[in-house]
Computed example of a mutant assay.
Amino acid sequence: MNKKIAFIGAGSMAEAIISGIVKSGILTKEQILVTNKSNRERLENIKSKYDVQCILDKEEVIREADIVILATKPYDLKDSVESIKEFLQPEQLVFSVIAGISTDYITALIGNNNPVVRAMPNTSATIGYSATAISAGKYASDEHLIQAEELFATIGTTAIVDEDDMHTVTGISGSGPAYIYYLVEAMEKAALEAGFDKETAMELITQTVRGAGQMLKESGESAAVLRKKITSPAGTTEAGIETLNKYDFEKTIMECVKSASNRSVELGKNE
């Protein structure tokens, strides 16, 4: 990819994407520029870990970039755009990975017709396993979407969706890894209470989660079918599933996704 990418924001999501891009080799370290509001220590940390170009001078960062990635917290977006918009050129492509914030709002903040593409990766980008949804703003063309897919494919899989669906995407794949980690925490506690040592418990649980994910990906069968195949009548798995049903596990997960999606909507209302 013969482009220079500028990250505005150097938090956990920016770092996850940077890590994935560096590991993929699609860009050289010289093609990746990073800046933030004023946290020099954080930039030095990113520089030491990934050897990318970390610069506090916003004008220098924007001037060199073909693609600008907005990766701030939602409440920092307005100030961040104010600090760079005078340096943006109309041909520069803008990607946003900020939860809940619409492309129309970003376009209004920028104040010109820069193409804006919204993306929702997750932190599994760090190891190249993100599930990233992508949607186009009103000035973004098919070519801009192709560029977004090319970049975000380096950190996992991509899917183009309508922007109206991005709130649900946030609740499912954006926040989804945290739900899985929470499940693992609970399984680990159960294993430790049963007398397992932590290392053995985590080896078994991690491989179980990994194997289940691969089965979903490779078997061609639905989660319901795969679950039923290992749930023998009056067996151990059935006993476990009955307990999950007793505590309304399915409804809890569905409400969990809705809560995250609704929070994404609330963040958008603060535009």
Rank of each mutant, 00 (worst) to 15 (best):
L88A: 02
T126E: 01
R63A: 14
G100T: 04
L43S: 11
L77G: 12
L43Q: 01
E91M: 05
I62Y: 00
E91F: 12
Q92N: 12
L33A: 01
G111Q: 12
I26W: 09
A125I: 05
N122R: 14
K58M: 14
I67F: 04
S19P: 07
K58G: 08
V34P: 10
D51T: 12
E60C: 06
E41D: 08
T126C: 09
F95L: 01
T132M: 05
K78L: 04
T28R: 09
I98Q: 03
I32V: 15
Q53G: 01
N45F: 07
A10R: 04
V34S: 10
I18R: 12
K47Q: 15
R118I: 06
T123L: 14
C54H: 13
N122Y: 09
M120H: 08
S135Q: 10
L33W: 08
G25W: 14
R42D: 07
A99Q: 04
D66Q: 13
L93M: 06
T28Q: 10
V117N: 05
Q92G: 06
I26S: 10
A6S: 04
L88F: 06
S12E: 13
Y129T: 08
A133C: 15
I106V: 10
V61E: 02
N114R: 04
L70A: 06
K78M: 04
Q31I: 01
A99C: 07
I84A: 12
K47E: 15
L43A: 04
D66F: 07
I98V: 15
E44L: 15
S38I: 06
E82R: 12
A65S: 13
T132I: 10
R118S: 06
V52M: 02
Y75E: 00
I110P: 01
I26E: 07
K49P: 01
R42P: 03
E59A: 14
K37C: 04
Q89L: 13
A131K: 11
P121S: 09
L109F: 05
S12N: 15
F95N: 00
I134D: 06
L93G: 07
I84P: 02
T132E: 10
T35R: 10
L27H: 13
S12F: 08
G100V: 03
A10Q: 09
G20P: 11
R63D: 04
N113A: 13
C54L: 09
I21S: 03
G100Q: 05
S102Q: 00
I106M: 00
F87S: 11
Y129H: 14
T126M: 10
I101G: 02
I8M: 11
P90R: 00
K58H: 15
I84Q: 05
K37Y: 14
Y105R: 08
R118H: 12
E30W: 02
L70R: 09
N122K: 07
A14D: 13
R40F: 12
N122V: 10
I110E: 00
E82D: 14
L27N: 03
T126L: 13
I5D: 00
E64V: 03
D76S: 08
G100A: 04
S130C: 08
F7M: 11
I106S: 00
I17V: 15
L109T: 10
I46N: 10
A125N: 08
Q53C: 15
S19T: 14
Y129L: 15
I55F: 02
K73N: 05
I17N: 07
L88Q: 08
P74L: 04
E30N: 14
